[in-house]
Design a binder for these strands. Structure first.
Lengths: 345, 345
DNA sequence: CTGTTAGCGCGTTCAG
DNA sequence: CTGAACGCGCTAACAG
């Protein structure tokens, strides 16, 4: 290939500034012990040559290694299983960056268990990514980690009042509004009730989605009346029964918004009642099931957060924070994906 | 931090296999000149220790440098400007990977110019990312590059019959179907005409979107009749005039699908006619304009491809192909984003 | 066939 | 205050 204009190295800069390699290094890394005059000369050479350190060489020379820990919920929720799988893959990637990662699975729904688990991590890792819970005990535990100098990011579910460095996940009120708009527009001016099934309203993200949803429906679609929100505890069987009740009690049911998991149960009930096409159904997270439901028409839209993206992003952000590198903000923003039958990946 | 179980190095493997560093290297990199017995021993040690090469060290030692070229269209189309900006940023990233990138802007709509430009790249780069055109001359030029040993990826617009290594962009027929479904469902069972404005139907991606769109409308929404497709040449003024004509001639216009650029003009005409709310309008690409139109309600949905994602993906894919590294397929799949007012980033 | 050795670009002692 | 020298993990000549 044609002339490779070899990128300038510290040696090049040293030559140009008529000093030694070590001196240039000291100036570049803002270490003390260099006379003002020399600093001046070196800095000139630095900018003149447009020096930029070779990240590979830096990593090699510094021999830096980090330890990260991913704390995920136990349980067999399809989305969390997906997330765990993707985190697993990110761990391999981290390995190549000379960083070791562990994955812990705990009952994040129990604030005590979660906060104790987190506290136990102090001093053992440089960074922690945790599917959090907005609870005082958890917040304190996170703050403890941060104060001890660790980098903490919350993943999927935030603890906004804590001092975590960053939240990696979607904007849940917006996700709820998105569901509301889709349901409203898909309803084709029909008039009637809306069923809303959450996992548990004590979960902040579910509560936030509900809020956004109700906001839009109330403001834009007065013909649609949301029924009291039910809690399906992310359980398919339970959701199925709730849906069956819904269908029995409300002949004018226009649509259902499922805020959490349990999608399978809802579709089952809809199909049993022969209303899978008639009732508009919107839920969260693209899984093998919701994917199938979209294709066969029993679901109308799926709001999704990309588990792979979230896992990779968490790994990248932790690494960037720990090693003081910049990051591409744009790349780390988790989108609120809308999937219809037509744009499935 | 706690015990860092230092990752095994080639030296560790060498010790364990009772051979020298060089021998291990030969075995690991499948180079000739090692006796079968030794190979055996070394491989055992390799797997036993779970050896994985340190990418940073490899890059440093190999001193590999690549030259990439990004070929983008000239013209001031907002999306292409976005793409160019994102490519610019990717070039910086590539720089850190010790890879130099150039960006060329040519009139890709002229097959001759494009194919000659491409042919001129032979031997000057290791990899090329090009916003292509499905034309025999272009296809031949791409094949020429590939045959000369270069890695070629098409970006945003494909040349599917060429031997490019990969296409980085969205599935356009699906994008068209997505627009069709949204328009159909948003139409709330209204009955009437649909305006369709493309940039130019000689552009493969526009033709593909149109195909998908019509497919869905014909099959699922018989109450909606697409009018003959018009060509706005991605020009706002022209699109405005076309839209004005459309509104004048068809009182029963239910919606408009804009396949290419020129969104601004369409909204202008809609607002002049006081029909911005009444007529459903769906278009492509999220820009500062379409963003505003979504918020103010003159657009109902935007189908988007993430220019930043595409630029980064092209860079990563080229690098991975050239250096023989694996890539995360999942991460390189460009999504068909749907944006409503509610889920704007 | 196998081992020794000199770098790659940078960080980090340790002398001067 | 400054410079020389070694090492990080790996590759690639060059010996043996």
């Amino acid at each position: 290939m044609i002339d490779q204009p070899r990128r300038p190295t510290l040696v090049d800069v040293a030559e140009r500034a008529q000093v030694s390699l070590a001196t240039v290094d000291r100036v570049f890394n803002r270490r003390p012990g260099v006379s003002a005059r020399t600093v001046e000369r070196v800095e000139q050479a630095l900018v003149k040559l447009g020096y930029r350190p070779d990240p590979a060489a830096v990593r090699l020379a510094r021999g830096i290694q980090f330890n990260f820990c991913f704390v995920l919920p136990t349980g067999t929720n399809t989305f969390m299983a997906q997330l765990a799988g993707q985190v697993e893959r990110s761990l391999h990637w981290l390995d190549d960056q000379n960083t070791f990662g562990d994955m812990l699975r705990v009952d994040v729904f129990d604030p005590q268990v979660l906060s104790e688990t987190l506290s136990g991590l102090i001093g053992r890792y440089h960074g922690v990514a945790v599917v959090a819970l907005d609870h005082p005990a958890v917040r304190d535990a996170i703050n403890l980690l941060v104060e001890s100098g660790m980098v903490v990011v919350t993943l999927v579910s935030d603890a906004p009042t804590s001092r975590r460095h960053r939240f990696i996940g979607i904007d849940n009120p917006s996700a709820g509004r998105t569901a509301g708009t889709l349901l409203g527009r898909f309803s084709a001016n029909r008039r009637g009730k809306l069923g809303v099934i959450a996992g548990s309203l004590t979960l902040r993200d579910h509560a936030e989605r509900l809020f956004g949803f109700q906001q839009v429906i109330a403001a834009e679609y007065p013909a649609l009346i949301p029924l009291p929100t039910m809690e399906g505890h992310d359980d398919a069987t339970r959701c199925r029964d709730l849906t069956a009740t819904l269908l029995r009690d409300h002949a004018d049911l226009v649509g259902i918004y499922s805020i959490g998991a349990g999608t399978r149960g809802i579709v089952e009930a809809l199909e049993t009642a022969g209303k899978a096409r008639e009732v508009i159904f919107i839920g969260h997270e693209l899984t093998e099931f919701s994917r199938r439901f979209l294709i066969q028409g029993s679901m109308d839209a799926v709001i999704n957060q990309d588990a792979g993206h979230e896992a990779r992003s968490a790994a990248r952000v932790l690494l960037a924070q720990c090693s003081g590198q910049p990051m591409v903000d744009d790349q780390e923003r988790i989108r609120i994906d809308i999937f219809l039958r037509d744009n499935l990946p």
